[in-house]
Simulated scan of single mutants.
Amino acid sequence: LPLCATTVFEASAVEHYPKLMEMIALFRKRHPGVVSHVAPTDQGFIGHKGRRLLSILNKQKLERVLAYMLDENEFLGPHGIRSLSKYHLEHPFVFHVGGQEYKVQYLPGESNTGMFGGNSNWRGPVWMPVNVLLIRALLNLYMFYGDDFKVQCPTGSGPYVTLFEVAREISHRLAGAFLRDKKGRRPVYGGTAKFQNDPHWRDLILFYEYFHGDNGAGLGASHQTGWTGSIARLLDLFGRVEAKDLEMEIGQLADRIVKEQVGGEKIGRN
């Protein structure tokens, strides 16, 4: 996703890393056609707290991408960002080759063909690593644009929120798959009665490979802690960090978080 290719560096980097600025200037000189379609990097394009942005998306393109990504009829599911827009459920991509029809359609659960990797399915389900990359990008963009850039989340819902709030909302939706709903059921266990009801199993959380795009049920391998376990990092991050904390330089904030995690210190928190 183009949105993931986003990073921000602090105002101090201009002074501390002059070679970086030279490389950016050289790239702009050599590739004016490319630069005209991405986020500007000239001296006039300085963001909140003097930060600089490196991103494929300029502000107008970012608004368009987020309008689709945060649409609940497109990518925004109840438990995270889907890997393919739900729009393609009724409007599949169809093409014909050699007299055969091939179709890519929104499929929120297990794959219905071995053509795309057997039981793995990137045509609708929610994948944790992609969502983590999107949340990282949104936080970077918030650090640059600050509170001045707002979008509707979900799209068409009315109120406008900051990109920090969007990132937190996606994190909450991801976490919601593991939490009990009003009926005492965890979406991650879907219709598996043993895991939903048995007192010996109901509180033992499995970290599935990917999740149903519409109801959050865990699918694929049930032991993908390498990436699905990153939900713990998101819970920890948004439990410790508020929007105002991103006023700090990222290095200082990272140091504070580590001290809190390792030593239990509460530094700079009210």
Rank of each mutant, 00 (worst) to 15 (best):
P2N: 12
T6R: 01
T7W: 04
V8F: 04
F9P: 00
F9A: 04
F9G: 00
V14T: 07
E15S: 12
Y17C: 06
P18A: 07
M21N: 03
M23T: 09
R30F: 11
H31G: 00
H31L: 12
H31F: 14
H37K: 10
H37P: 00
V38H: 07
A39P: 00
T41R: 09
G47H: 04
R51N: 07
R52F: 06
L53W: 08
L53Y: 08
L54W: 07
L62M: 04
D71R: 07
E74R: 14
F75Y: 15
L76N: 06
I81L: 13
E90A: 15
P92W: 08
V104R: 04
V104D: 08
Y106R: 07
Y106T: 09
P108E: 05
S111M: 09
M115E: 14
G117T: 09
G118Q: 08
S120V: 14
W122D: 06
W122G: 10
R123C: 13
R123W: 05
R123H: 14
M128W: 02
M128C: 05
P129K: 12
V130F: 12
V130P: 02
V130D: 10
N131A: 01
V132I: 11
I135Q: 06
I135N: 07
L138R: 01
L141E: 00
Y145P: 12
G146A: 12
D147E: 14
D148E: 14
V151N: 00
Q152P: 13
P154A: 09
P154F: 03
S157E: 10
G158L: 09
G158I: 08
T162F: 03
E165V: 00
E169V: 05
R173A: 09
G176M: 03
A177T: 11
A177R: 13
F178C: 12
R180C: 04
K182L: 01
R185G: 00
R186Y: 11
P187Y: 08
G190N: 08
G190I: 08
A193N: 11
K194S: 04
K194I: 03
Q196V: 12
P199F: 11
P199V: 05
H200I: 09
W201C: 11
L206D: 14
E209I: 07
E209R: 02
Y210N: 03
Y210I: 01
H212W: 03
G213K: 06
G213M: 09
D214V: 09
N215C: 10
A217L: 06
A217P: 05
A221F: 02
Q224W: 13
G226S: 15
W227Q: 10
T228N: 08
I231K: 11
A232C: 13
A232G: 05
R233A: 14
L235F: 15
L237H: 13
D245Y: 01
E247L: 00
E247S: 02
E247M: 01
L253E: 02
L253Q: 01
I257T: 10
Q261E: 09
G263R: 05
K266S: 06
K266W: 03
R269F: 04
